[in-house]
Nucleic acid binder design. Structure first.
Length: 641
RNA sequence: GCCCACGUAGCUCAGUCGGUAGAGCACGUCCUUGGUAAGGACGAGGUCACCGGUUCGAUUCCGGUCGUGGGCUCCA
């Protein structure tokens, strides 16, 4: 006689055991159709799950996050069924849900082709249309393993054999096809249909590059066609924001094969670069950092002492001269330690903050390179804080405040913090790591920021905080970092005289806010879809004449704006004003300034923004003031709608 | 580095079932002096990524190299 309690507190009693689906049906026909699964006393179960005792029940539909996840998971199964119905000798492995969709990895004798993808999708549609009921059965572990071995599914068998022996294994079947799965799943394949297979890729079995390569099929799945279409449209939008395309179209930079993984910054791109660099420079100076410049090439012996040679050699570019082996710096820290070591330092000198816009080279695998986002030559807004163990907390708090301020100026306010602890390959004893992690934990608690753990992802020399910012279309980018290093100064023999006259090795905080300037600029371009805020726009205003009659005044106006600190250009070409407006709008110039006869007479300009807003005619001084006001707000309070 | 796909004019892309290629935009010249997202005419521009092989002949077919894209791995 189960008594079922629903989320709204209402109760229903039944005179015999009922399934989740039957409870839904007792509430209404619409809910019965929509019901995908249930949550019984906090555990997700299938709609066919039999309730034989009192329970709290929540009916899961596609409107619940869990429901959407199930749709994706079940669609992954549908894909596997389709693939195996077409290629019976393809072996299934795993098919998890990911953001916006799912993937499924198959072992197959040859790579899948785009034509295969079409076939798979068509078969999936057929199977969905057939509305096959999905049912669950349970086997003891050993029996399940033997079953999968018997039907030649060795990857599945391997997965099962990793599960504790006492546990029972559930299998889900639809039609004549069956797969190992924890579940739950939607009640039938007819609940699926709004999906699309997106792409093919290779992926290693268990994510290990020493293992064999599997064929991964990516797909997306949604509760209905409308949401699917909205997602596909959004993807197109993201493509339009691609910084590589915009970088070319806006004349910011280019890359070519003679310098793989490096960037050729064009005048406009470098203007943007300098604006950012000068801004960060002033923020750092305000916070007591001293800027330096350290050498690009440093002797191997230094890298051996710092631990890089042992832990980072595969990423380093090597050069040779007069029989000495040199390495192009992949990081700035050893150089900064050498600067610290010049002269005797006292505890009174701490914290000592050394900053550098450090140009680093790392020999990244070719497959990792991607536009500005992943390069081999990049520049960090890097700095090292030499301090005592007691100062770690306050310095961390100060740094986090600065970082949040800087991000806000760039218009990023959604920032997440991750705590990455000791990686498998590392320098220093466990005892030192215990202390470093302890100090960093205490420091991050002192900031009051919420954080999540990122196990095993620390730098080889210390644990780190990672600062992840979310962009305008919801993508996450790790930019800032703060790393606590208890070992580097000892390895490089850097010390200071403590209050009691003894020599001590300072703690080093490695920190960056933007991370790589190259990458940060890429993020800015995509975040703003090329419409950089006025303070960053390489060209802030273009003055254009309507006929050649206004040429003199247009020149005068442009010079005036330049003298007022506006990055202004002039367009005197013999073209119609509509043509010029179109071009500079597409070039994302924030302010389009037109000089016709009327404006010449009143020594003013007709002001239009790149978003098409007509701000009317303003005297020259007012135009300059308006642009200056907009630029001064940085990314915080944009005037433009 | 690994898997798959791709590489034709500055850009976006057609095309050649093997007979050295075409459009639009951009560029140049000329006409047009036009008030807020494309005025018109003419013209120039390509070792079809690179290196080999097959062939009478390769941009096209085959192999390799390099690069790019999407993944994997890695990561700022």
């Amino acid at each position: 006689m189960p008594l079922i309690t629903l989320p709204d507190g209402s109760q229903r009693s039944f005179d015999k055991p009922v399934t989740v689906g039957q409870v839904a049906a007792s509430i209404g026909a619409g809910l019965a159709r929509a019901a995908l699964a249930g949550e019984v006393d906090g555990t997700l179960v299938d709609a066919s799950h039999l309730l034989d005792a009192d329970a709290r029940l929540r009916i899961i539909t596609s409107r619940d996050p869990e429901g959407l996840e199930m749709i994706r998971h079940s669609t992954a199964h549908l894909l596997a069924q389709a693939v195996q119905s077409i290629y019976p000798d393809a072996q299934v492995t795993i098919g998890p849900v990911i953001d916006n969709g799912f993937y499924y990895d198959f072992a197959f004798k040859r790579p899948f082709t785009p034509e295969d993808l079409e076939k798979f999708e068509a078969r999936m549609q057929e199977l969905a249309k057939a509305d096959l009921p999905i049912h669950r059965r349970v086997l003891p572990r050993d029996e399940a393993a033997a079953h999968f071995r018997a039907i030649g599914e060795r990857y599945k068998a391997e997965i099962i054999e990793a599960i504790p022996q006492a546990e029972a294994i559930s299998l889900y079947g639809q039609g004549d096809w069956e797969d190992l799965c924890r579940g739950p799943h939607v009640p039938s394949t007819g609940k699926l249909g709004a999906f699309k297979l997106m792409k093919l890729a290779g992926a290693y079995w268990r994510g290990d590059s020493r293992n064999e390569m599997l064929q991964r099929v990516y797909g997306t799945a949604w509760p209905d066609e409308k949401q699917l279409k909205a997602y596909l449209t959004q993807l197109e939008e993201a493509e339009k924001r691609d910084h590589r395309r915009l970088g070319r179209e806006l004349g910011l930079f280019h890359q070519q094969e003679e310098a793989v993984g490096s960037v050729f910054w064009h005048p406009k791109g470098h203007t943007l670069w300098r604006t950012i660099e000068q801004y960060v420079r002033s923020r750092l100076a305000n916070d007591g950092y001293q800027e330096v410049k350290s050498p690009q090439l440093l002797d191997r012996s230094l890298w051996e002492k710092s631990g890089h040679w042992e832990n980072y050699a595969e990423h380093m570019f090597i050069a040779e001269s007069e029989g000495r082996m040199l390495a192009v710096k992949p990081m700035n820290c050893p150089g900064h330690v050498l600067i610290f070591k010049q002269g005797i330092k006292s505890y009174r000198d701490l914290p000592l903050k050394i900053a550098e816009f450090g140009s680093c080279h790392r020999n990244e695998p070719s497959g990792a390179l991607h536009g500005l986002m992943r390069v081999r030559a990049f520049t960090q807004d890097d700095a090292h804080i030499f301090c005592t163990e007691e100062q770690v907390s306050t310095e961390t708090v100060k740094f986090c405040n600065l970082l949040m301020e800087v991000y806000a100026d760039f218009g990023f306010t959604d920032v997440r913090v991750k705590f990455a602890d000791r990686p498998p390959q590392r320098a220093g004893s466990d005892e030192i790591w215990d202390r470093a992690e302890g100090a960093l934990r205490e420091a991050v608690e002192a900031t009051g920021l919420a954080y999540t753990m990122n196990p095993g992802e620390g730098a080889f020399y210390g644990p780190k905080l990672e600062f992840v910012l979310r962009d305008a279309i919801g993508r996450d980018w790790q930019c800032g970092t703060l790393q606590v290093d208890f070992g580097m100064t000892e390895r490089l023999d850097a010390d200071y005289v403590a209050e009691d006259g003894s020599r001590k090795h300072p703690v080093m905080l490695h920190r960056a806010i933007l991370g790589s300037l190259e990458r940060f600029i890429g993020i800015l371009i995509e975040n703003h879809a090329g419409r950089l805020p006025t303070w960053l726009a390489p060209v802030q205003a273009v003055v254009m004449n309507i006929t050649s009659k206004q040429e003199g005044f247009a020149r005068e106006a442009m010079e005036f704006l330049k003298n007022q600190g506006v990055r202004a250009e002039i367009d005197l070409r013999n073209e119609k004003v509509g043509f010029k407006i179109r071009e500079h709008t597409l070039a994302r110039v924030p302010y389009l300034l037109v000089a016709g006869d009327r404006e010449v007479d009143s020594r003013s300009l007709a002001v239009r923004t790149r978003s098409g807003k007509d701000l009317g005619v303003m005297p020259l001084g007012e135009v300059a003031a308006r642009i200056a006001r907009d630029a001064a707000a940085r990314g915080r309070d944009l005037l433009e709608g």
